[in-house]
Amino acid sequence: MPISPNQGSTGGGTAVTITGTNLTGTTAVLFGTKPATGVTNVSPTQVTAVSPSGSGAVGVTVTAPGGTSNPIPFFYVGAPFKSGLNVSSGPTAGGNTVVISGTGLSTATGVSFGANTATPTVLSDSQISVVVPAGAAAGPVGVSVTTAGGSNNGLSYTYIDVPTITAVTPASGPTSGGTAVTITGTNLTSTSQVTFDSVPAPFSVIDATTVSAVTPAGTVGAVDVGLSNPAGTATDVGAFTYVAGPGI
């Protein structure tokens, strides 16, 4: 006589279906010594019920006019505990993969990022991976994992828009580098790298629209200026020109 699902939250409330024979007129379903609620005799071979609260493994029995069945095992599962995300931010468009660590994750069926939910891949009881769904807008959202034991919140993930570059000032400097440059644009708060002709440059984030950087050494001519954040990269083609120094 199988039961499906055969596990549920320690807090109870799991709807289960029990199949067997001679179930007509079922009067009670017990989880261990606790009676289930919402017992419904669907057919002579099927009964549905809602589990009470409990812990560990218990035997589930069905009582009908002909007597009480043999017990079948049901396992109570605690709510998951999440300790962290390996990546805490990403593009508003979603699509990047995040690994969530914690305990009690082996029965995970869904991960919610704000109002949007994705189906995870269970790696172990302590890790799951999930492809982040698209976000409604840039900004932080709560992350919730749902398992057979219930749901648990407490983590945060930040959606980030792709940066843009509107201006690079000044637009030229010596090939020796060392020019202090102001880059203006949008979505610059989480800037992770600035490059001149693909060479990384030291930088400081001023605010959401301004980043300051110092040019590295380069060769004569116009070069592309790149700016990256966890959502992507903006490139201003030929935005800075390296100029040769005077010779005598």
Rank of each mutant, 00 (worst) to 15 (best):
P2M: 10
S4C: 04
G12Y: 11
G12P: 14
T14Q: 09
T14F: 01
T14A: 06
T17K: 01
N22L: 12
L23M: 13
A28L: 15
V29C: 00
F31E: 02
G32W: 02
K34Q: 07
T37Q: 13
V39I: 10
T48A: 08
S51E: 13
P52V: 09
F81A: 14
S88V: 14
T92L: 08
S101K: 01
T109I: 02
G110H: 00
S112G: 05
T117C: 04
V122Q: 02
V122A: 06
D125G: 15
V132D: 02
V132T: 01
P133Y: 04
G135H: 04
G135I: 02
A136D: 10
G142C: 13
G142L: 13
V143I: 12
V143N: 06
V143P: 03
V143C: 07
V145F: 05
T147D: 05
T147K: 02
T166G: 09
T169A: 11
T169W: 06
T175V: 14
T175E: 11
S176Q: 14
T182H: 09
S190E: 09
V194L: 12
F203V: 14
A208R: 09
T219M: 12
V225G: 01
V225Y: 03
G232S: 12
A234N: 03
A234F: 03
G238Y: 07
T241D: 09
V243A: 13
